[in-house]
Every structure is written in structure tokens, then in C-alpha cells.
């Protein structure tokens, strides 16, 4: 697939389970070669969306094309070209790592003559060669996750669905997974759809994200675009002494200051309309008799934007 080609095209996609609406009118496009994040709380509809995209679950309504195929009618063809890391590694603990991979290699149609080499190569790539003949049930959670990732890559899929790939992993293992996802996208040109509720992970890895809430798309774009369009103002941390009422009042009276919050003893956090107010803040603090030790502007994070969106949805 040529980078930039539309790989997934969903229009008004809907799915419900009894009274529960899991996906509600989802429309989005995902391009070849990008890491696309599906963000949302548990139950927001991320996993159901992956199941709909991969033809495992039929939608109740709407239209979806994945890699140019209809997932409902051409699911078998589609799944030969996609790889999935499910939320739980879903490995058979009574088989060894090597047996698990060989089993899925047969299901994914990896030619018999290549299975042994392919499995060996992936076990080495994921650092599992030394324990390849141990039962997967004896593996640590991090090792199981790596093995499940290896399984998703067995047949060289063009499109990867990774459902919470770092859930439950320690920071070192999570960093390894992040590096791998970046490698898959940048070096190998694969498209990755990443479901996560880890916003730092999304900000670090994703070219674009879609925020889901109760199955509805509430915002989408690159993390930077979302931050720009949905956050109002810039947060600034001011470390000063003495931190008295007079300084706080002087800051509150300054044009361009949106909010003043006392964060910690000796530290004020203010929200300002733009960078242009920063020199004025320094002047006002010093003018009010305070000693200024630090003035640190901080861009809003995707996390703050996400919670702002969540709050808006809850209120609305």
C-alpha cells in the first residue's frame, strides 16, 4: 500500500448489543503507513470497532471498507492481510511458544517450507529464542505480550490492530512495545490501529487519533491539532517567594490571565491566553515585592484535552 492511501474507510458504522450501543455512527478514514489511535475509556467501543473492521463482527448499519475489501463478505481474504493483538494475549498456555506460533502460521497460511524459519526469526526478534520451547503458560505477562505480538506479525500483515498493547506491562516492557510500533510504522511502512486509554502512549506514537465516547466519535486529528483546537490557553508554573495575597491579586488583575491556581506551597499555576503575557507576569511578580525563581510555560497535553472532552460529553 502506498503511504497516504486510504486503508480503512468507515461511514456511519453502528453496532449494538441488546440495549447497549457499542458503536454509534462512527465515520473515519485511516491512511496507509500511519499509526492511528483509538482513544477512550473501557467500554467506549474501541475493541468492538476493531472487531467490525476485521470482519469478526457484522455491523448493524453503516458501511466499512478495509484494504479495499468488505469485512463482512470478504472477511477471510481480509484477515489474511491483517494481524491482531487482542486485549488479552490469548495464547494457549499448554503449548510452547514455538508451538503457538507454528499453529497460527498454519492458520494464516504461511507456506509450510517457511514456517520454521519465520517462527525462529520472530522468536529471536522478540527475545524469546532461549525459552521458545517452554510452555507459554509459564511466561511472564510481558513475555506473553511479546509472543502475542510475534503471532500478529507471523504472516507479514499490511494492517495491524493492536488492542491495548501495553496494558499491564512494566515500564521497560512498555517502552519495548513502543519502539516496536514505531519501527513497524516508520521502517516497515505498516499501518497500525492502536486502541489505548494510555494518552501518553497515544501522544508519543500516533500520527492521528480518534476519541471515542459511548461508541461515538467525539474528536479526531493529530495529537497536536487536538491540543491546539480543544485547549484554551497555556499553563504557566511560577515559583516565587514570598507567595502572598498581594502577588496573587496583582496577577489576577493582569489582562490575559485566565485563571490563577495555587498548585503547591511556593508555586502558583496560572492559565494565560498566550505567550505574550509571560514578560508581564515577571514584571508584576517582581513589582509586587516577590522574588521570581522560575517561570515555566507548559503546552497542554493530550491527556488534558481528553479529560476536557470527556467532561464536555458527560455534561452534554
Amino acid at each position: 500500500m502506498v503511504r497516504g492511501t486510504v486503508v480503512i474507510e468507515a461511514e456511519d458504522l453502528r453496532r449494538r448489543f441488546g440495549e447497549v450501543v457499542a458503536v454509534d455512527g462512527l465515520s473515519l478514514e485511516i491512511n496507509a503507513g500511519e499509526v492511528f489511535g483509538l482513544l477512550g475509556h473501557n467500554g467506549a467501543g474501541k475493541t468492538t470497532t476493531i472487531r467490525l473492521f476485521n470482519g469478526v463482527l457484522p455491523p448493524d448499519g453503516g458501511r466499512v471498507r478495509v484494504l479495499g475489501l468488505d469485512p463482512v463478505r470478504e472477511g477471510t481474504l481480509l484477515r489474511r492481510r491483517t494481524g491482531v493483538l487482542t486485549e488479552i494475549p490469548a495464547l494457549d498456555g499448554r503449548l510452547t511458544a514455538r508451538e503457538n506460533l507454528a499453529y497460527y502460521a498454519a492458520l494464516y497460511g504461511v507456506p509450510r517450507s517457511r514456517v520454521r524459519r519465520r517462527v525462529g526469526k520472530l522468536l529471536a526478534k522478540f527475545g524469546l529464542s532461549e525459552r521458545a520451547d517452554e510452555l507459554a503458560g509459564n511466561y511472564s505477562k510481558g513475555m506473553q505480550q511479546r509472543l502475542a505480538l510475534a503471532r500478529a506479525l507471523l504472516h507479514g500483515p499490511e494492517l495491524l490492530f493492536l488492542d491495548e498493547p501495553t496494558a499491564g506491562l512494566d515500564p521497560v516492557a512498555a517502552r519495548e512495545v513502543h519502539a516496536l510500533v514505531q519501527d513497524l510504522s516508520q521502517a516497515e511502512g505498516r499501518t497500525v490501529v492502536l486502541c489505548t486509554h494510555n494518552l501518553l502512549e497515544a501522544q508519543r506514537l500516533c500520527h492521528r487519533v480518534a476519541v471515542l465516547e459511548h461508541g461515538r466519535l467525539v474528536a479526531s486529528g493529530s495529537p497536536a491539532e487536538l491540543v491546539r483546537s480543544l485547549s484554551r490557553g497555556l499553563r504557566v508554573e511560577i515559583e516565587l517567594s514570598p507567595e502572598d495575597r498581594e502577588v496573587v491579586e496583582a496577577l489576577r488583575g493582569l489582562p490575559g490571565i485566565l485563571e490563577v491556581v495555587k498548585a503547591h506551597p511556593g508555586i502558583l499555576e496560572v492559565k494565560v491566553a498566550s505567550h505574550l503575557v509571560l514578560p508581564e507576569i515577571a514584571r508584576v511578580v517582581v513589582g509586587a515585592g516577590g522574588s521570581l525563581f522560575r517561570l515555566s510555560p507548559r503546552e497542554p497535553t493530550l491527556e488534558e484535552v481528553y479529560f476536557a472532552l470527556h467532561g464536555r460529553e458527560e455534561a452534554g
Partner: peptide
């Protein structure tokens, strides 16, 4: 054992 989902995501009919 929660191993079914990975199986359902394979090309097997």
C-alpha cells in the same frame, strides 16, 4: 481460557 478471540481473528472460516 480466553483464547477464542485470537482464533476468530484468523482467516479460517
Amino acid at each position: 481460557r480466553k483464547t477464542l478471540e485470537a482464533l476468530l481473528h484468523t482467516p479460517a472460516t
